[in-house]
């Protein structure tokens, strides 16, 4: 077990959600909410606490798209590429954001850990297509230019 890692947060989360194997997804979700990713250190700890192998926890964590094993940016921008957004040209928005931040499909987070850009299959806000979210706040009827504006606003904010 890693001595320098503070497991207090993890303990609190386990206490809240219950020390059950079935709670592992919810526990990982809360851990990720706190750290913005799943630190490697929590795996052996959870494995011992919940009685599930580390390989199994890793298996769950890599199955679901929302979990990240690498730190995500302070602002997580999700560009919707659902059907409605796709037919209303969501891809140019995505490309614009990636270009502005020097990101790609493989590299989704900026080195300064300020921005993460990813796609999401549908945010269910199809009436406002194309949409994107920044840390779960929905921005409707986007265009590549609007996206740049939004980005600039966030950059000043940091």
């Amino acid at each position: 077990m890693n001595k320098t890692f503070d497991y207090k947060v993890v303990d609190e989360i386990i206490d809240e959600l219950g020390n059950r194997q079935s709670a592992v997804i919810a526990i990982l979700q809360n851990i990720q909410e706190h750290y913005r990713y799943l630190p490697k250190e929590v795996f052996p700890y959870l494995s011992k606490k919940l009685g599930i192998s580390q390989a199994k926890i890793y298996s769950v964590a890599t199955f679901y798209e929302n979990f990240s094993l690498r730190p995500k940016g302070k602002y997580v921008i999700k560009v919707c590429d659902g059907t409605a957004c796709h037919v209303r040209k969501s891809i140019p928005i995505l490309e614009k954001l990636r270009k502005e931040l020097g990101l790609s499909e493989m590299k989704t987070t900026t080195d300064d850990l300020h921005f993460t850009v990813e796609t999401v299959s549908c945010l269910g806000a199809c009436g406002l297509a194309p949409v994107l979210t920044v840390n779960d706040k929905v921005y409707p009827a986007m265009t590549p230019d609007k996206a740049t504006g939004l980005l600039n606003g966030l950059k000043e904010d940091k």
């Binding site: 194997q21 079935s22 997804i25 979700q29 679901y64 929302n66 979990f67």
Partner: peptide
């Protein structure tokens, strides 16, 4: 309430129950 974690396949019945049980949604 169980929150999904980003897997379309969990709309399938047995995958959904597996996910509630804390497993891969297969």
């Amino acid at each position: 309430i169980n929150r999904g974690a980003g897997a379309f396949v969990c709309g399938e019945g047995s995958a959904l129950t597996a996910s509630i049980e804390g497993k891969r949604g297969m």
